[in-house]
Write a protein that binds this DNA or RNA. Structure first.
Length: 482
RNA sequence: GCCAAGGUGGCAGAGUCCGGCCGAACGCAGCGGCCUGCAGAGCCGCCUACCGCCGGUUCAAAUCCGGCCCUUGGCUCCA
């Protein structure tokens, strides 16, 4: 089975064939950095990350570009607020660094470039000029608008007809536009005093002082870094219209080339029956989620629903993700430890385990090739966990080769493709920590030997409180650090 | 009103494109058993779904067709 994706542009599932058979040009519409990122944003990031990783696994050289919108009225609105900063740029820089920190915590692969609007104004002006010269845009009172009636395919992404659309943009713009659906490419600073209040940046342009419009940035930045035609353009479902629709209009009008071959849209994260968003004030920041549930459980949560289906956030769904993550991690852990044990140095064969490994690899690949179905991919891994546990519980002697392959699968598919940092990847003073815990467990063992169960249980509880989970087994106490 | 996507067990969530292997996966919660000093983890078993409603096509439908009801997203900044 080869990779198939659901393309919003055609509304159909299609075989994935990038322009160059060896590489993929991937652009992701990043966020406006006016606040901390929430779980909804993280959902998109993590899915884009899984796509990136799977494409690499398939052998593609992935060129991944992800923008930061650092010129925006929402940012300007926060100028002077508390200690955020005294200018649009300062606030944007602040939230960009906070956002990158959040991204790191979720173990996202880095993009090749993170372009910013403020650094691409010359390219934006060039693009607007081209559109004006080609007759797709017109200047009006110092602002420049895209004329939707000139681009005959306008509406092809969102399947809407121009006549049925409501007016775009702010009230103040209406009188300047020829058609209500026209949208701003460049906004005059003077014509809209509210748009460039203290702290908001403006640039000089052929049309006078002003700021880039809302949609032009992505067209300019993606073209600058990846060329006229992208292979994959990903973004949140809420961006289909008008943002992505407008990007297509601008780019295709300017270059006469198809802007993006495949449009993939991540459906929204919902909570309490509605989407999570800052305006509804029902959001949970990435930061809070990570500190409360741990980065891996958050990642597990976000990947536990395929990207093209909406997902429900609640305390319960995240709790479940914690369990799913731990089950995977423990399974991996057990397999690794078994490999090191003497019981593993045998030549026995367990057909069940071997079959399970093979099935997992097949099912995992089928799932990812099936429009990046991460939910099913995880299921395949969890089924391997069951097979490993059964093998270890039921067998006197272990099937070394099969265990080796199981561990390899966990690492290759779970770590590299799904981006889970499995146990054993600990950082810091792991060895010292291990030795200290062993020491406490030795003491506890002595207490148990002497029949002082109460004291032994206290020690176990105290370790638990510190995040060290203790399990008594036939071969002594084992532990894992949360 | 227009565009788009959905309605599957207590929860969550696959399967629907390419109809039969689905009386329905994986997991969480719950129940019973094994193991254990106990607990946890793990294993085994159970539990609860005829897949929104109605009708049609077919040897066969959760999966195809038609109608209806409901939900969500977009049509304003938004991942």
């Amino acid at each position: 089975m080869t990779l198939e994706v659901t393309n919003t542009l055609t509304g159909e599932r299609e075989p994935f064939e990038p322009q160059d058979p060896d590489s993929v040009l991937l652009y992701y519409c990043g966020l406006t950095v006016s606040d901390f990122a929430h779980l909804g944003h993280a959902r998109s990031w993590v899915h884009v990350d899984a796509m990136h990783r799977w494409l690499e696994h398939l052998g593609y050289d992935v060129r991944h570009v992800e923008n930061f919108t650092d010129v925006n009225e929402k940012i300007v609105a926060r100028v002077g607020e508390d200690e955020l900063g005294d200018s649009e740029g300062e606030i944007a820089r602040h939230f960009i660094s906070e956002t990158i920190e959040d991204m790191r915590s979720l173990n996202l692969l880095r993009a090749e470039v993170y372009p910013r609007v403020s650094e691409h104004v010359p390219e934006i002006i060039d693009l607007v000029e081209t559109l004006t010269e080609k007759g797709y845009a017109y200047e009006s009172n110092g602002s420049v608008y895209f004329d939707v009636t000139e681009f005959e395919e306008y509406g092809k992404l969102s399947n809407q007809k121009i006549e049925e659309m409501e007016a775009q943009g702010e009230e103040s713009e209406r009188s300047e536009k020829r058609h209500p659906a026209d949208f701003a490419l460049w906004k005059s600073g003077e014509a809209h005093p509210d748009d460039a209040p203290a702290g908001g940046q403006t640039w000089d342009s052929p049309w006078g002082e002003g700021r880039p419009g809302w949609h032009i940035e992505c067209s300019a930045m993606s073209t600058t870094h990846l060329g006229d035609t992208l292979d994959v353009h990903v973004g949140g479902q809420d961006l289909v219209f008008p943002h992505h629709e407008n990007e297509i209009a601008q780019s295709e009008a300017a270059t006469d080339q198809q802007f993006a071959k495949y449009w993939l849209h991540v459906r929204l994260l919902e909570t309490g029956g509605e989407k999570m968003s800052s305006s509804l004030q029902n959001y949970f920041t990435v930061r809070n989620a990570v500190s409360e549930f741990g980065p891996k459980a958050v990642r597990m949560f976000l990947l536990s629903t395929a990207y093209n289906n909406r997902q429900t956030y609640s305390e319960a769904t995240l709790d479940e993700a914690v369990e799913r993550w731990e089950r995977l991690d423990r399974g991996y852990d057990r397999a690794v430890e078994a490999l090191d044990s003497t019981d593993a140095r045998t030549k026995v064969e367990d057909a069940d385990l071997r079959g399970a490994v093979e099935r997992t690899r097949e099912e995992f690949a089928d799932a990812m090739n099936d429009d990046f179905n991460t939910r099913e991919a995880i299921t395949a891994l969890l089924e391997l966990v069951s097979a490993v546990n059964r093998h270890l519980d039921e067998r006197e002697e272990f099937d070394y080769r099969a265990l080796r392959e199981a561990v390899d699968s966990f690492e290759e598919l779970g770590e590299r493709v799904l981006g889970f940092a499995l146990a054993g990847d600990g950082e810091g003073d792991v060895e010292l920590l291990d030795e200290l815990v062993e020491l406490v467990l030795d003491v506890r063992e002595q207490e148990r030997g002497a029949g002082n169960y109460e004291r032994a249980d206290d020690l176990r509880d105290e370790l638990e409180a510190l995040g060290v989970e203790v399990q008594d087994t036939d071969s002594g106490a084992e532990f894992r650090v949360e």
